[in-house]
């Protein structure tokens, strides 16, 4: 008897408690920036494509759902000719992001990727590229690398000395 009354009281009390149900999808949940959702390819602070087609994300991927082909522009800057992620296989482990030496590939707090057709879960580079640098606003791999590309000659990377003059006779 007593327990019955107590239960009724509990229910009555909850009528006035703060609501925790979120009215999704009208109301969005907060996901932290480091949430592992939809994967994007970012640009460096100069607006250039960050991905250098090193294949490290692809090899790190435990379900092998990333594939790409490297190519180069006429000045030697490497970038992916195509870049594909099969999200129907992706387990959002974030290994690709961890492996990426250029901060190009990043997981975002977007998880709304549902599709009726599985084929639509295959994302190509145009689907993956965003216009900004994502979570890492400052890093530009090419400013550090020793390879010369258009606009950056040998010796012009960070912490580099000018190229050795091999014809010099100075000791």
């Amino acid at each position: 008897m007593l327990s019955l009354v107590r239960s009724l009281w509990e229910v009555f009390r909850h009528t006035f408690a703060r609501r925790v149900t979120v009215q999704y999808p009208e109301q969005k949940a907060y996901l932290s920036p480091r949430y592992r959702g939809r994967i994007v390819l970012t640009r460096d602070p100069d607006g250039g494509e960050r991905c250098v087609a090193c294949n490290l994300c692809a090899v790190a991927c435990p379900v092998a759902c990333i594939s790409l082909q490297a190519t180069e522009d006429e000045h030697g800057r490497r970038y992916p000719e195509f870049f594909r992620i099969n999200f129907s296989r992706c387990i959002f482990c974030g290994y690709c992001e961890e492996a990426c030496p250029t901060y190009a590939i990043q997981l975002t707090p977007d998880c709304e990727m549902g599709e009726y057709k599985r084929q639509n879960l295959v994302y190509e580079k145009t689907d993956l590229m965003i216009d900004g640098p994502g979570k890492y606003p400052d890093y530009n791999f090419w400013r550090v690398a020793g390879v010369a590309i258009g606009g950056k000659d040998k010796g012009q990377a960070e912490n580099e000395l000018p190229p050795v003059d091999t014809h010099s006779l100075m000791p």
Partner: peptide
């Protein structure tokens, strides 16, 4: 054993 892209390389043709 590190071969990559197995589940993506042909996904543009068919996801199956």
């Amino acid at each position: 054993s590190r071969y990559s892209g197995r589940t993506a390389m042909l996904a543009n043709i068919s996801v199956h």
